[in-house]
Every structure is written in structure tokens, then in C-alpha cells.
């Protein structure tokens, strides 16, 4: 449990798919070209005639999960869950851009920035927060569908929306990977079927599987050394004399 959990509580029913959040984020965070740190998913309308066709738009971004699969896929801890804020951070100085974390996110929230060649994703606009501003996407939203704040702080609007009990709260997860996301949707949201199981690259899986083996070999070697050392201490250098037999 983190002390603070900065999170978004989203009324996706209020989203009109205007993409202000997407462009605002791209400008604020210098997200290049076709990439984006956030998105609006859409529930395609059903024209089969069984129901009135309608659409639902679902804003999203990194969900700053409690059990982030991206963190598990990072060998160095460059991606980590900051326990002070609840944000899944990327230490850009430590990240070398190996790309392990990108398929490991079930939500496609990460991309490898072609300019910095490092992993990138939503970090709730730290520079703006430091200046007392909301994250770029929250600030600019025409229908104020995104509510941002510390959900562990009873005074925050996000907490109140989340904990008031007035609205059912849903998260978007898939059956294979439940990362315990901190992106909450009010009432209901759609689409719900777009997330993917987390994919940890084979190289990382191999590294994890080989770790006990490597540790075993080092351990065996250590044991051998200990045996030799033990013998040396117990038997002394008698072996030297024995070795001298072949003189």
C-alpha cells in the first residue's frame, strides 16, 4: 500500500472523443510523431438493429498499477513504483531503452520514444504538478471527464468520487493479467476487451529462469572453494607432501 496514490477517476460517459487530452499531452511531454502517452478508445456502434446504436468513449493512459507488469519486466528497476506518490515512474537516467517493458504493459501505455530511445509513458506531468497545475490532459478536458488526485486523501475530489459509493467503480483489466490498475471509471465503461495479456520478452524470461542456475553454479563454485579451504585448514598442507611423492 502506497502512502499516496495519484490516480485518475474518469467519467468516460462524459467523453466526447475530442482528443484535446491527446494533443495537450503530446505538447506538454514532447511526444513525437504518431506516438501518444494517452488515448481515447471507442466502443464501436452496433447497427444490427437489436439495439439503438450508440458509442462510448474511454479516455485512458498508464494506469499506475499496484502490481505493474512493466516493473516486473524491467531488469534494472529503471521502471519502478514510487511508493511516495503511487506513480509508476521511469528513471530516464537508468533506462537504457531495452524495450522489455513495452509489451509487458497490458494496456499499451508505453512506447519507446524514437528521439530519446527510452521507454516513455504517462507520469502525470511532474513539472506541471510542481507548478500547481493539473496534468495536461486533465487541465484541458472540455467535459472534465478526467478527475485527478490522491485517492488516499479524503479531501481530494478523486477520493470522493471513488469512495462516495454513489457510483459503481470499474477498472479495465483482462483475465490473464490483472495488474490492479489505478485508473478508475465511474459507473461503467466500454470498450472492455482491448487489453492484452502482458508479454514479457523471452530474453527476460530466460534471464529470470537462468538466474537460479547461475546462482547454483556460483554456489557450487563457492562450495568447492569452501571445501578446499576447509581441507586446507583441517589437514594443513599435508597434501603438499603427498604431492611430492612423485618426485
Amino acid at each position: 500500500m502506497t502512502k499516496k496514490q495519484l490516480a485518475m477517476v474518469i467519467d468516460s460517459g462524459a467523453c466526447i472523443d475530442c482528443k484535446a487530452c491527446v494533443i495537450s499531452c503530446k505538447v506538454a511531454n514532447k511526444v513525437p510523431g504518431a506516438f501518444s502517452r494517452n488515448w481515447i478508445k471507442e466502443q464501436a456502434p452496433d447497427f444490427s438493429g437489436t439495439a439503438r446504436p450508440s458509442m462510448h468513449f474511454q479516455p485512458g493512459a498508464c494506469m499506475h498499477c499496484d502490481t505493474p507488469t512493466c516493473v516486473a519486466a524491467c531488469p534494472t528497476g529503471a521502471t519502478y513504483k514510487d511508493l511516495e506518490t503511487g506513480i509508476v515512474e521511469i528513471d530516464k537516467g537508468l533506462c537504457i531503452g531495452c524495450g522489455n517493458c513495452i509489451p509487458a504493459c497490458p494496456y499499451g501505455a508505453r512506447y519507446r520514444n524514437p528521439e530519446t530511445c527510452k521507454a516513455d509513458k504517462c507520469d502525470y506531468c511532474p513539472e506541471r504538478r510542481a507548478a500547481g497545475l493539473p496534468p495536461a490532459c486533465v487541465d484541458t478536458c472540455p467535459t472534465k471527464a478526467r478527475v485527478f488526485g490522491d485517492i488516499n486523501d479524503p479531501m481530494s475530489e478523486a477520493h470522493q468520487l471513488l469512495k462516495s459509493g454513489k457510483n459503481p467503480i470499474v477498472t479495465v483489466v483482462n483475465e490473464v493479467t490483472d495488474t490492479k490498475p489505478n485508473m478508475y471509471y465511474l459507473d461503467k465503461t466500454a470498450p472492455g476487451d482491448w487489453t492484452e495479456p502482458a508479454v514479457v520478452p523471452a530474453s527476460m524470461t530466460a534471464m529470470k529462469q537462468l538466474t537460479p542456475l547461475v546462482k547454483g553454479i556460483v554456489g557450487l563454485s563457492g562450495l568447492g572453494v569452501l571445501a578446499m579451504l576447509g581441507r586446507q585448514l583441517l589437514v594443513g598442507d599435508s597434501h603438499e607432501q603427498e604431492e611430492n611423492h612423485h618426485d
Binding site: 482528443k19 484535446a20 491527446v22 494533443i23 495537450s24 497545475l133 487541465d139 484541458t140 472540455p142 472534465k144
Partner: peptide
């Protein structure tokens, strides 16, 4: 950024504004 004091736009700036 939107001017939060600007009531006509309800303190928003759309994709084009951004």
C-alpha cells in the same frame, strides 16, 4: 493551457487549441 477563469469555454482548450 486553458485559462481556468474563462467561463465561456468552461476552462477548456480543445485539440485544435492545444
Amino acid at each position: 493551457d486553458p485559462n481556468p477563469k474563462f467561463l465561456k469555454s468552461r476552462g477548456m482548450l480543445c485539440a485544435r487549441g492545444n
